[in-house]
Design a protein around this nucleic acid. Sequence first.
DNA 1: TTGTACGCGTTATCAT
DNA 2: ATGATAACGCGTACAA
Lengths: 350, 350
Amino acid sequence: MGMVTMKHLAERLGVSVTTVSNAYNKPDRLSAELREKILATGGEMGYCGPDAAGRLLRRGKADSIGVYYGGGLSFIFQDPYASELMAGITEVLEETGHSLSLLATTASGTDDADLVRQAVVDALICLAEPGFHTPAMQAAVQRRLPIVYTHVVADEDIAYVGIDDHHAGLLIGEHLRELGHKRVGVITRSVLGEKLKKVSLESLQAHYRKHDSQFWLQRLMGILEGLGEGAEVQFAALPRSDAELGAAATARLLDSDEPPTALAALSDAIAMGVLDEVESRGLRPGVDVSVSGFDGLAIATARGLTTVTQPMRKKGRKAAMLAIDPERQPRQITLPVKLAARTSTGPAPR
Amino acid sequence: MGMVTMKHLAERLGVSVTTVSNAYNKPDRLSAELREKILATGGEMGYCGPDAAGRLLRRGKADSIGVYYGGGLSFIFQDPYASELMAGITEVLEETGHSLSLLATTASGTDDADLVRQAVVDALICLAEPGFHTPAMQAAVQRRLPIVYTHVVADEDIAYVGIDDHHAGLLIGEHLRELGHKRVGVITRSVLGEKLKKVSLESLQAHYRKHDSQFWLQRLMGILEGLGEGAEVQFAALPRSDAELGAAATARLLDSDEPPTALAALSDAIAMGVLDEVESRGLRPGVDVSVSGFDGLAIATARGLTTVTQPMRKKGRKAAMLAIDPERQPRQITLPVKLAARTSTGPAPR
DNA sequence: TTGTACGCGTTATCAT
DNA sequence: ATGATAACGCGTACAA
């Protein structure tokens, strides 16, 4: 009644388990007819090939790549940036016959570390959110699991595929400065859905430092540098990259005493909400108020959003290849970004 | 050099492996101080908890649920319906601390069956596309892996969470008939990206039968029944649920000699493209030509699309719960659908 | 070409 | 509270 194992099959046929094993794994190491017979009676007995667990223990290879996403796992399927990245990753995994293991962070939030420890994977791809010095990633390091980050990490031993976030931010900031914008609202993200009370540059810096999440900060600082000294900047920080939250933040910024003439969202997903709110007020993007995004989603193009584009799918592909083959060189890849100036930005009014 | 195991740790401390195991798994079965010491030197030696493979072999539980998607895996992240479903699934998995294993179909397409055989999972959720009698699913059955389908399966032994696709189609068909539409274009999907040459009702029926993919056919037949005898129906079948393909098909249908007065898309994702094409021709949806969808995506609501809504996220949640606890009753769940009549449909012109 | 014997790392059972 | 032992199912030297 229990599971049919190689042993059963071997006993039934009067051959050794080795031979049965070979029948499934090394066809050239036994006669074709014997192999045939073994496979046949195997099917008959309801044996369905070497057991995954046993084989795993013995071989030490899982043929599976893990993806660790510190935030809620369901957001991977909601956030367009993450989706594109995942699409790139899975493309490669399909080509190489690997599976993909999504590591869910436990609801209690207590120990993602345990999850990482128990994951049956050959390598880990870490999608943004919290950074390197997190317990989960430390567990992976301890397991000697190859890790690939999808953003730049300032440590030369660590493999990553990223973009130059500071430079990307710079492109946005300079673009807005050249258009004459002096009052700018920057809408960024907080890490792990945390809610920030007062959002100042200092509090943001502290927040990102705390979560060891450098790249949002890089973007932010890039924008500020690009805007130059004269600019007056207000901040908003959203717990998710989400259009609705983006719209709400926009409303707040536009309702302030001296509303910004430009709104820089740190993701296109957020920018979609910014455009929604702007348009719903009868304001014309690029004329009455300028709006910029970040990422280069297809949907952003459709709405004429000025943004910085990054090759998301390629990023995913490269990360997957690095995870599958940890020896691959180079192990630190920075992909190019490009400013896509479209209709949502224009000269500052007045 | 090699991996640090319980045995090493036990020898080093002069205790038994059992005790070490208990230190990690059954804290109440040994003194607090000994446990403390074990965990401490464990950390020191670079031991990072019970090995996943060993534990898996011994316990027979992987704490992981597999999702099998016959089409290309990367589409899971592109198709909004699948994304919603996955979001529901992952929500539950997060709550219960399970991982999610996405089973990629090999590029060669040859043996998904092997993939299923090797998957380290406790159960399988099967997302649409090909049906029950596929080699991959047979492999799962042989492994005695619990399977949950996300559509109705006509076999009382099989667990599923689905909707009444025929009824849903009926709602659309009747709606269009009541509005007086006599010439209707139906845009459906083919299975596994296959391209159909001539698209007739007969060829579609044969196609769906061949892939054991009943539910598209159910929707189709429901629509036809709802439209009644008098209707003249043209078909298009897309290899993917995709706006661009939907737009192209729409162009073809509208360019025919006697263009349809209504276009019924079998998914909202397709319907988005239909709306795009209709609008780009300067036609008014719901006035010059009626458009309907299927699923009830948020984005469809935003554009006033008449559609049949189904609780996608709930579907995912229920499927996950069923997969986690295969004893759960009932094992065959049919969720309700609702016609959402909005502005994209209206009386037939003339 | 086929078989023997052992180890992979863990946990359940039973004993102390 | 702690320990000894036996599986779990498979792969692989090594021997025949």
